[in-house]
Structure formats: structure tokens, C-alpha cells
């Protein structure tokens, strides 16, 4: 009886997950169809898969550059952001300089503003200084935008690391550098990974900032999809489904591998162990 109930229970959970995944599954299925099969009515569930869409996709020279841009911008920006945020969060958590609360508040308020409102003045500034369409400046802007959330997550985790560790380290003659990087850093690894993943996924999928302060050189995939460079203004469904299927592999692999850190990360450091 209990066996049956467990099977039923797990069956329902699997069904829910599959329901949520269904539209994505439909995208992936469509990427193996020809244009006619995609538009067929009634929709085809059984068909002979074709790899032509993927072949056509990689026949575009631009694709590789755009994927490289996506990888470079998201990895670079998030690494810079996590390093900078860790130092700041350590300072806020341990030394509590005057104005900590106010600075934390200001940082967070960037994250609360709708994208166009954030980017509008930055756009004017970038145009005035000639920083538009440059990898470096776009990367730095993305890093800035990833900092607030990282500082908040990391400060939560650092607050959870007892100051006894610092004291022990100091008494035993360790420098602050040693304490920060050798004693405290390893203990907040879940927070670092969570901040890394969340921001990476954000930059990976970001379109507006790249569109406004980037340009043809720095174009990433969401930008290319939005302006419909190869997709006839967003109506070439074979292209879109193949592109999307390729592009979502990385984030999905990440949430599979780092699942437990996502859960721990969202507790903002209130839970140290397994969730």
C-alpha cells in the first residue's frame, strides 16, 4: 500500500515537472522539424528528425562570434563582480564602516529599477565618451549590474561565519589577507557559487543593455534573436527553435550541476548545510 502511494506521489511530481517543461520540449522538438512540419496542422508529434536546421544555423559566420560574445561577457562580468563583491561584503560584514546600511541600500536600488531607466543615462554617457560597442566597457557595466545581488548574498553568508575564525587567525599571526582568502573564503563557497550562477544566467540572457550600449561587435545571441538578424524579424521558426535549443543547454546544465547551491544561495546565508 505504502509502495503504491509512493509510486503515485512520485508519478504526480514527475508529471508536474514535465508539464512545466512541455513548452521547452516543444521548442526542442520543433528544432528537428522542417519548416513545413513546424507549421503543419494538426501539430506533428511523430516525424523523421532532420539536422538541417542546425546545419543551417552553423553555416552563419556570425553565430560563432555571438556565442563567443555571450560566453566572454557573462563569464568576465560575473568573475569581476564576484571578486569585487566579496571584498566589499567582507568589509561590510566585519568592519561595518559608517554608512554600511546606506551603501547597501543604494546598491540594491540599482537592481530595482526597470532596465530602460538604468541604461538611459548610461547610454548618453557612453555615447558622449565614445565607449559604445566596446567589449571592455560593456563587460564593466554588466559587472556593475551584477554587484548588488552578489554583495547581498555574500554578506548574508559572511555574517554566518563566526568572527572567532578571524580572531584565531589574528592571534596565530595571520595577516588579514591570509584570513580573508584562506580562512573565510572557503567557508562561504556556497554563497560564491550561488552569486556566480544567478548572475551568469542573468547576463547570459540579457538583451537590452547589449542592444543599447553594445553594438554589432559585442552582439550576443538574445540581441541577434530580438533584432531578427537571421530570423526574418522573428518569424523563421526553424531558426529560432534551433538557436534557442542550443542556447539553453548551458544554463540548464548549470542548474542541474549546482542545484543545491541555488537552494542554499536563496536562503541568503541563513542555512549553512544541505537544503
Amino acid at each position: 500500500m505504502t509502495r503504491l502511494r509512493a509510486t503515485l506521489y512520485y508519478g504526480i511530481l514527475w508529471l508536474i515537472s514535465l508539464c512545466f517543461f512541455a513548452p521547452i520540449g516543444w521548442i526542442v522538438l520543433s528544432s528537428f522539424k522542417t519548416q513545413n512540419e513546424i507549421l503543419a496542422m494538426p501539430p506533428k508529434l511523430l516525424f523523421s528528425p532532420t539536422f538541417d536546421n542546425y546545419r543551417a544555423l552553423f553555416a552563419n559566420d556570425g553565430i560563432f562570434k555571438q556565442i563567443a560574445n555571450s560566453v566572454f561577457l557573462s563569464l568576465g562580468a560575473v568573475i569581476v563582480a564576484v571578486v569585487v563583491s566579496f571584498l566589499a561584503a567582507f568589509c561590510f560584514s566585519r568592519f561595518k564602516p559608517r554608512g554600511t546600511d546606506f551603501l547597501m541600500f543604494l546598491l540594491l536600488s540599482i537592481r530595482m529599477l526597470p532596465g530602460p531607466a538604468v541604461i538611459l543615462p548610461v547610454f548618453l554617457m557612453y555615447v558622449a565618451f565614445g565607449w559604445k560597442d566596446s567589449h571592455l566597457w560593456l563587460l564593466l557595466f554588466y559587472a556593475m549590474f551584477s554587484i548588488p545581488f552578489s554583495v547581498w548574498i555574500l554578506k548574508g553568508f559572511l555574517d554566518g561565519v563566526s568572527t572567532r575564525y578571524d580572531e584565531t587567525g589574528l592571534v596565530n599571526g595571520g595577516s588579514w589577507m591570509h584570513i580573508i582568502f584562506k580562512v573565510v573564503l572557503p567557508q562561504v563557497r556556497p554563497g560564491l557559487i550561488a552569486a556566480f550562477i544567478f548572475n551568469l544566467i542573468f547576463v547570459w540572457n540579457e538583451y537590452l543593455f547589449n542592444f543599447i550600449i553594445g553594438g554589432v561587435n559585442t552582439q550576443n545571441i538574445p540581441y541577434a534573436l530580438m533584432v531578427g538578424t537571421y530570423s526574418d524579424g522573428g518569424l523563421n521558426w526553424t531558426f529560432i527553435s534551433a538557436m534557442t535549443s542550443i542556447y539553453m543547454v548551458l544554463p540548464i546544465v548549470f542548474i542541474f550541476i549546482f542545484q543545491k547551491y541555488l537552494l542554499v544561495g536563496m536562503t541568503f546565508g541563513t542555512v549553512r548545510g544541505e537544503v
Partner: peptide, 30 residues
């Protein structure tokens, strides 16, 4: 103790890591 819990949760969380631009475009088709 669910078999394949990690995969099931990955499938469940997948919509939120999808590129919004791509999701929007494809939903226009759906």
C-alpha cells in the same frame, strides 16, 4: 528519496533560465 529528483527539479526550474527574448518569440508561435 524520489528517483531522478534532481532531473525532475531541473526540468521544473528550466523555464526560469530560458532566454526571455526566445521564450517570448516562440510563445508568439504557440
Amino acid at each position: 528519496n524520489m528517483p531522478g529528483r534532481r532531473i525532475a527539479l531541473t526540468l521544473l526550474f528550466a523555464p526560469m533560465v530560458l532566454t526571455p527574448v526566445a521564450t517570448g518569440t516562440f510563445f508568439r508561435f504557440i
